[in-house]
Amino acid sequence: MSKLEPQALTPAPTTVVGARVASPRKRRRYSLLSGRDKILLFFMVGVPLAIFLVLIWGMTLVSVGLAFTNWDGVQPIKFVGLDNFTQLFTTYPFFWPALSHNVLWLLVFVFFATPMGILLAVCLDRQMRGTSIYQTIFFTPVVLSLALVGFIWELQYSPLAGNGFIDSALVSLGIVSPANAPDWLGNSSINIWAVLIAASWRHIGYIMVLYLAGLKSVDPSLREAAAIDGANERQTFFHVVFPVMAPINVVIVVVTVIESLRAFDIAYIVNHGKNGLELLSTLITNNSISEASLLGFGSAIAVVLLVISLVPIAIYLTRVMRSEES
């Protein structure tokens, strides 16, 4: 046993980034496991797994089941077939706006926030003076809760009568008249954009750090080779660095998609997700965890969200599986 004392061990690697250890999986059974050890291992995995299965996947299945009922939480459950879905897709006026806002959220993240985060990462990867200060500033929003992000941005976006900064500045500088001051959070055609700016504020820093770490793990000799071949920085990035970053790129895509589907807090803080800020997540909450208590209907929306979420999840799992096999 004495050989097993921690101090006898090799020091732990301080970071795995860059340590692209492709440890070949040995499909070898440990015959040394005693019966007691096997039971212990079984519990180590089994208990958490059971809880996880019940709380997450079990509840997901119940949600799917409830989607075919019109349960109000009190009266007996009655199955209504596809009624909830028909209503969602045809007459319910807030479903398509919510879905399109989620899609818009995704598009803005994919075409603006995520590329912006990548751009910042590339800029900061150049080992310039002040890099750490920039990094700290860009990343700070990420540690704030989305609810707090909502409060902080409301100080900017409130209408003139609510002492919002932007409108006060625009009016004071004579750019708009008080009567024409934009209602950033109340105008249903612009408030989603206002909220998206606040959400991007947080997302950009998140992507930046993820990507920066990936960039640091790229083998320097690759860039040197590219430089010797006469490639400029842009060419080096797109033709050399970007392709070897493939694993990180998948993570970035998944994070971006999942964050867009999870969008909830800011819209909920601003106005509970109505008047131009409808999202699938707020629609679920407003219909089921609210005075309305339309649990069946809310669950149907949850099923739609689930089905959409399974796409990025599947992509991610495929990726995980492939890396496990290699």
Binding site: M59, T60, S63, L66, T285, A302, L305, L306
Partner: peptide
Amino acid sequence: LLPPQVIIVP
């Protein structure tokens, strides 16, 4: 990776 709203009702 599931959105929490998917499971909140049950």
